[in-house]
Design a protein around this nucleic acid. Structure first.
Length: 271
DNA sequence: ATTCTCACCTGCGGGC
DNA sequence: TGCCCGCAGGTGAGAA
C-alpha cells in the first residue's frame, strides 16, 4: 500500500496530535517483520516529541531514542483518543496521554523498531542505504542524473530500489514514467540528461499531487484520521491494463519486471 | 560491486 | 457454491 505519499499523509494526520504525549503503555500483537528491539516497559514514561518521515519510514522521536515504523504492503495507522476494539490484524499500539496509536497490518510486512539513535546499528541498517528525498531540495537534478548513469538496470527498477531516490513505489514509478514519456524497461544509464530532467520533474509532480490528494486508496488505505485518499482517480496507467491511454487511446500494457507489474503506454512511452 | 530472486503473510478476485 | 491459483502498495537477505 504505502508509498511516500501515503506515509506522508499518515504522518501529517497525527504528528501534531501525538506530539508531547507521554507513553503510558505499549501493546504488541503478532510478530511483525522485525522484533521491536527493546522491552515494552523501557518505552513507558517517555514522551513522543515529533513524527518525521524518511523514505517510507516514520520516525517517532522519543526522550531517549526513536521508533521506526514501516507500513510494509498493507499497513495503516490510526490515532484517536479512543480506539475501537482490536481486530485480528491489529498488531501494535502505543497508548499516550495525547491519544492512542494503532498499527493495522493484515500481511505483517510492516515493522516497529526501536533505535537508540539514528546512528545506532539498527537505524543505519534500515535507513543507511536510502537515497534522496524527492520532495526536498536534496533531490537535485545533477546527482539524480549522475546516479542514473551508474545503473544498468531498467529505469523502473532503479526508481523502486530506493537507493537513488526514496519513496517511489510501484504505483508512482509507473505514473512518473508515464508522465515523463519514458519506457519502464529502458536502462537507466541510457537516459539523456534532458530525459532525466523530465523524469526528475515528473517524480516531484506525481508525489506532491498524490500527497495533496490524500494518497492512493486501492483497497483500504486511510490516514491516521481515517480519511481515504483520492489519487487513484488520477492514475493514468497503474491498474489500467487494456484501458485506453488518456493521451492517445492506445490500450495500456501490463508487463512483469522483477516480479512486479508494470503498466505503461507503448505509444506515449516509446523509449 | 551491482543485479537478481526469494521470502515474509493474508486476503481477494477470477476461472473452473 | 466452493476450491485453487495468481496477484497485491515493500524490501532485506542471500545468491549469482
Amino acid at each position: 500500500m504505502p508509498e511516500l505519499p501515503e506515509v506522508e499523509v499518515t504522518r501529517r494526520s497525527f504528528s501534531d496530535r501525538i506530539a508531547g504525549g507521554e507513553i503510558q503503555a505499549v501493546w504488541l500483537g503478532k510478530p511483525l517483520r522485525w522484533p521491536l528491539g527493546c522491552g515494552l516497559s523501557s518505552l513507558v514514561g517517555q514522551k513522543v516529541h515529533a513524527v518525521r518521515r524518511r523514505g517510507k519510514y516514520l520516525l517517532l522521536d522519543l526522550d531517549r531514542g526513536l521508533l521506526l515504523i514501516h507500513l510494509g504492503m498493507s499497513g495503516s495507522l490510526v490515532f484517536a483518543a479512543e480506539l475501537p476494539p482490536r481486530g485480528p490484524h491489529d498488531h501494535f499500539e502505543l497508548l499516550t496521554s495525547q491519544g492512542h496509536l494503532r498499527l493495522h497490518d493484515p500481511r505483517r510486512f510492516g515493522a516497529v523498531v526501536f533505535a537508540e539513535s539514528e546512528q545506532s546499528a539498527v537505524a543505519v541498517k534500515l535507513l543507511g542505504r536510502l537515497g534522496m528525498e524527492p520532495l526536498t531540495e536534496q533531490f537535485a537534478l545533477a546527482p539524480f542524473s549522475r546516479g542514473l548513469k551508474l545503473r544498468r538496470s531498467a529505469i523502473k527498477q532503479v526508481l523502486l530500489s530506493g537507493d537513488l531516490v526514496v519513496g517511489v513505489g510501484n504505483i508512482y514509478a509507473c505514473e512518473a514514467l508515464f508522465r515523463a514519456g519514458i519506457r519502464p524497461t529502458v536502462r537507466a544509464q541510457r537516459l539523456s540528461v534532458a530525459r532525466a530532467a523530465r523524469l526528475h520533474q515528473s517524480i516531484r509532480e506525481v508525489l506532491s499531487r498524490a500527497v495533496e490528494q490524500g494518497g492512493t486508496t486501492l483497497r483500504d488505505f486511510s490516514s491516521a484520521m481515517g480519511e481515504s485518499g483520492h489519487f487513484q482517480l488520477e492514475a493514468a496507467v497503474y491498474g489500467r491494463a487494456g484501458q485506453p491511454c488518456s493521451i492517445c487511446g492506445t490500450p495500456i500494457s501490463q508487463i512483469r519486471q522483477g516480479q512486479r507489474s508494470t503498466f505503461f503506454c507503448q505509444s506515449c512511452q516509446r523509449k
